[in-house]
């Protein structure tokens, strides 16, 4: 059973050294406030710059309009969970998952329960399209590992599902090895691809590591 808050590492991209981080299985009102004060203004600045430079909208960070304040309720339902990742005193990433909103689609696990990643996003300064190099690397991996652990804890054996924003498709398909089930005509106006992880894929990602 996973324990939270949990000790994790992130990698400082500038120095290529590991730094201590902490993951929480709840997003506190103070996290949302920090999002509002630090994260959102930074994203707004990025968009203003892109706009001023005439960069077409389809090249902007595709989550630039996301409003975590409106999407994370003060109390989450039993079947939902939200995660916050912090490092050196600052918020670095959010994830919101559900254990009921999606059933598996891959033939070998069709109809079985999985953890569905509703939303996952890293802070603007950790997004490579915004800052090179990003402040910290590994935020996405740590959050995905938490989703896998939840799947294991709930008896779903590591099965995961998610709809990726197009700019992140290669991360899920090529780097994590999720199975790409193509554009999903039934959700999100058919504009997002649906990806799924089997227990074997998730086990390969965790690679037997003990997470404190």
């Amino acid at each position: 059973m996973s324990c939270y808050p949990g000790r994790r590492y992130l990698v400082d991209s500038g120095t290529q050294t590991v730094v201590d981080a902490e993951i929480f299985d709840v997003i506190q009102p103070s996290d949302i406030e920090e999002w509002r004060l630090m994260w959102k203004p930074e994203m707004d600045r990025v968009i203003q710059t892109l706009q001023a430079n005439g960069i077409p909208q389809h090249l902007w960070p595709q989550s630039h309009h996301w409003d975590w304040a409106g999407k994370v309720p003060a109390t989450t339902a039993l079947y939902e969970k939200a995660y916050a990742l912090r490092c050196e005193g600052s918020l670095q990433g959010f994830m919101h998952v559900s254990s009921v909103s999606q059933q598996c689609r891959l033939p070998e696990q069709q109809g079985k329960h999985c953890i569905y990643v509703d939303f996952i996003e890293t802070a603007p300064w950790n997004q490579p399209s915004i800052r090179q190099p990003p402040k910290y690397s590994l935020v996405g991996s740590v959050l995905m590992a938490a989703a896998i652990h939840q799947s294991l804890d709930e008896g779903f054996k590591g099965r995961l599902g998610l709809h990726s924003l197009p700019q992140a498709d290669t991360w899920y398909a090529d780097r994590l090895g999720f199975v790409d089930l193509g554009l999903d005509p039934d959700r999100y106006q058919g504009r997002l691809k649906y990806f799924e992880a089997t227990p074997e894929i998730s086990a390969k990602i965790l690679n037997g590591v003990k997470f404190p």
């Binding site: 309009h65 509703d118 996952i120 997002l192």
Partner: peptide, 14 residues
């Protein structure tokens, strides 16, 4: 790599 997943506010999105 970008890691974003999820479709909230898609009408204003991609």
């Amino acid at each position: 790599q970008e890691v974003r997943a999820g479709g909230f506010g898609l009408n204003d999105g991609p």
